[in-house]
Write a protein that binds this DNA or RNA. Structure first.
Lengths: 193, 193
DNA sequence: TGGTACATGTAAGACGTTACATGATTTA
DNA sequence: TAAATCATGTAACGTCTTACATGTACCA
């Protein structure tokens, strides 16, 4: 029971439908919480029956109707309790790193290829984050926004996401280059795995 | 079905028991794969019945006997297949970032306290990583080891873990400081949340 | 002898993922 | 009219977490 808090935290930012939330989780929120759309639909239903969020139908003419949600006072109270509870250490699951861990015993080619693909993907994500930060702080420069801009929470988590993605990019790139170089050197000596 | 590959990758490094593996997963491997001890015991049993690892009993006199495992050829083949399959994007779950995301709507005190605790914890982890890297590369300097040292996989993933933890530390520290400063400023103006 | 580290296991329940299902509306 | 995007939901299945259970051996 921790997805609920991520959903509540995301909904503090404004009124969103399950579909919109799914896109938010796929971009910014995915940097600290992963969830697939189906999880969000079921969680939103549960949160509403528990009174932590309240939904309202929005009639749309240009596209299908939707149901948007806002956090209730009970929802904020729940987040407050959550924030006062010791956070479990974060968890990471990254298949690409599992592959690199094993790379001495495998053919390096596919691993290098995936590193290079992910380097491209993370470059794109970096741009998204940079645009998001710029959008969040509006006319203010970063220093000023950090001192007194609002809301600060989403800005800070986005900053963390940006740094993470920058490190990813750097690591993907340098690791791919390094493994390529080593594969080349081995080939010359005639000792591939 | 992906824990299995993390276990296989960890076992390539040497013969380990479930208990030893649990400690490895709690330290180095936790940087890219999270698993609790019970998961490892059940996964090891499954991997052995499937012939991807093979276990042997080790009689100990100073402490309880244990069962240690090594990766079979079938296990290496399975890893090879795994590495050739597109890796899913990595997933992260970090409650502390959920709290920061919501911090504008909550009392900042508990969140700041947790950021400061985690800053200490990540400093400790940084030291562990630095020692591990030093131990892995032995007499060689980093540049030389990266060029031709072996095994390179564990070194590279440990490097990624170190960078991640350094970024964590930096973010935890600066975010705590910033939230403290803002809380102080608000208090002076008399407008806490 | 009481605590800590070592060592492994079963089982229930919570949670997450995938497949399937449906349907409106816009754009190419 | 086919594909993409918007929009939501149920159900089956697989994975993870937690609680419970057990026992050895060392050290204070």
């Amino acid at each position: 029971m921790a997805l609920r808090h991520a959903v509540l935290a995301a909904l503090l930012d404004g009124e969103y439908s399950g579909y919109q939330l799914a896109k938010i989780f796929d971009l910014s929120v995915s940097n600290f919480w992963h969830a697939v759309p189906q999880q969000l639909y079921t969680e939103l239903a549960r949160l509403e029956t528990e009174g932590l969020i309240s939904g309202r139908q929005v009639i749309q003419h240009d596209r299908p109707n939707k149901r948007v949600y806002t956090v209730t006072q009970a929802g904020v109270d729940e987040l407050e309790r959550f924030a006062a509870t010791p956070a479990r250490p974060g968890i990471i699951r990254e298949n690409l790193l599992v592959m690199v861990q094993a790379v001495d015993h495998l053919s390096a080619g596919p691993v290098i290829a995936q590193l290079e693909e992910r380097a491209v993907a993370s470059a794109a994500k970096i741009e998204v984050f940079e645009r998001t930060l710029k959008h969040l702080r509006g006319d203010l420069d970063e220093e000023t926004y950090l001192r007194s801009g609002s809301p600060i929470g989403p800005y800070l988590t986005c900053l963390r996401g940006l740094r993470f993605e920058q490190e990813n990019h750097e690591w993907f790139t340098s690791t791919a280059r390094l493994l390529r170089a080593r594969a080349g050197a081995h080939a010359e000596e005639g000792e591939p795995p």
